[in-house]
Amino acid sequence: MRNGKPTQTTPSNSDTIQARSGRRRRRPVAQLLSVLVTAVLTAATATPALAVFNGSRADSDDYAWAVRVQLAYPEGVASCTGSLIKEDTVVTAAHCIRNNGRSPSAIDVTFHYGQKRDQYTIGVARAVPMPHYDPALIKDDIALLFLQSAVSEPTIGLASTPAPVGAEVTVAGFGCTGDPFKAVEPCDAPRRLIETQLTTVPSASCPDIAGPWQFCTYSPYTSANRGDSGGPVIWSDHGEQKLVGVTNAIELPPAPAYLNLSASIPYELDWIRATAGLR
């Protein structure tokens, strides 16, 4: 996911989870974060991507606002996941649109991905990362994509308060379905959106969280994976489903399986509202 390389639609050996340097780890035993973007494809040896390890197919009616994000880089086409928060605005991860300091030459988003009759794609007119985005810290890893035209799809509401520790949240995405701890396994092309449930845990549980801009979730058997970067983390706040986070990265072994890092929507809410023109 993080570290700047989206999901690819052509095969390549670079379709591996990218590990971040361990210099900022709070626990020396934890090998650091893997980015949750599917790596940018190179010439001709990788494989495309599926979604969420040990998840289940999401109900398309519940996720009409979820999009697959395709990004054109010189090495090939990469992909992430995103959420429609306004008729012309999608939120995703900043590392999807900033690959080693570079920006993609073109970005498209696809609604109802995998549903033959309903699927359609719209170009992105402008991509704006959070101004203080810092890939080294995975800080403020959120970006907004402004579509070339508005759509009539439903939008997902934004949470104004963080999910408490112990809360169950839902993660969804178009990333790989294999075990993220086994990056050598093939990553088949995504067919539909996949979801899974994780539990929020104290931030100290994730050695790579360096500030309040992120929160940590855990499961012993399921996780986000490459290509899920930018995807929704949803929490039911008083019975209403809200976007509480954006998938950023995972901790690599020997961290306990599976620790996911997500950018906090409540923490970035003022910037998102002001930049997207939301009231």
Results as ranks from 00 to 15, higher is better:
Arg98Phe: 00
Val244Tyr: 00
Val37Arg: 12
Phe53Asn: 01
Asp140Glu: 13
Thr45His: 05
Val67Leu: 10
Pro266Cys: 09
Leu84Trp: 13
Ala43Met: 10
Arg57Phe: 13
Leu269Pro: 12
Ala189His: 01
Arg98Ile: 09
Ser14Tyr: 08
Ile122Leu: 14
Gly230Cys: 10
Ser83Gln: 12
Asp134Arg: 05
Asp270Met: 00
Thr247Gly: 08
Ala64Lys: 13
Asp228Arg: 07
Gln214Phe: 06
Lys5Ala: 07
Thr38Met: 03
Ser223Gln: 02
Ile85Cys: 12
Pro186His: 06
Ala204His: 07
Glu87Asn: 15
Arg2Asn: 06
Val35Ala: 14
Pro266Val: 06
Phe181Cys: 02
Ala150Glu: 12
Gln197Gly: 05
Ser21Leu: 12
Lys86Met: 15
Gly239Ala: 05
Leu278Thr: 12
Gln148Ser: 11
Gln18Ser: 13
Ala72His: 08
Glu251Leu: 11
Ser83Glu: 11
Leu252Asp: 02
Arg2Val: 06
Pro74Tyr: 02
Ile97Trp: 08
Tyr258Thr: 01
Gly245Ile: 01
Val201Gly: 01
Ser219Asp: 07
Ile17Lys: 04
Val69Thr: 05
Thr275Ala: 09
Gly231Asp: 12
Thr47Leu: 03
Gln70Asn: 04
Glu153Gln: 14
Arg2Leu: 07
Tyr221His: 04
Pro11Met: 10
Pro253His: 09
Arg25Gln: 14
Ala172Cys: 14
Ala276Cys: 10
Thr170Met: 14
His132Trp: 04
Ser264Met: 02
Ala93Thr: 07
Asp134His: 07
Asp15Thr: 01
Ile265Thr: 08
Cys206Gln: 06
Leu252Lys: 03
Arg117Cys: 00
Gly178Asp: 01
Ile138Cys: 02
Gly82Phe: 11
Val151Lys: 12
Leu158Phe: 13
Ala136Ser: 12
Ser56Thr: 12
Arg98Val: 06
Ile138His: 02
Ala143Gln: 11
Asp228Gly: 07
Asp15Cys: 15
Leu158Gln: 06
Asp188Cys: 01
Ala183Val: 12
Pro162Trp: 05
Arg68Tyr: 03
Gly239Tyr: 14
Leu261Pro: 01
Gly230Pro: 10
Pro104Phe: 09
Ala44Thr: 14
Thr89Met: 14
Ala64Leu: 08
Pro207Ser: 15
Ala249Gly: 12
Ala49Pro: 00
Asn99Arg: 10
Lys86Arg: 15
Gln214Trp: 02
Ala224Ile: 09
Ala257Glu: 02
Ser264Lys: 05
Arg102Met: 04
Ala274Gln: 14
Ala94Ile: 11
Gly123Ile: 10
Ile250Ser: 09
Ser60Leu: 02
Thr222Trp: 03
Leu147Cys: 10
Val151Pro: 11
Glu251Met: 09
Ser103Arg: 15
Ile194Cys: 00
Ala39Gln: 13
Gln148Gly: 13
Cys187His: 13
Tyr113Gly: 11
Thr10Tyr: 07
Ile122Asn: 06
Lys5Ile: 04
Pro28Lys: 11
Ala78Ser: 15
Gly178Phe: 00
Thr247Met: 14
Thr170Pro: 06
Asp62Val: 04
Glu195Lys: 15
Gln115Met: 10
Gln18His: 08
Pro186Phe: 05
Leu158Arg: 13
Ser205Gln: 03
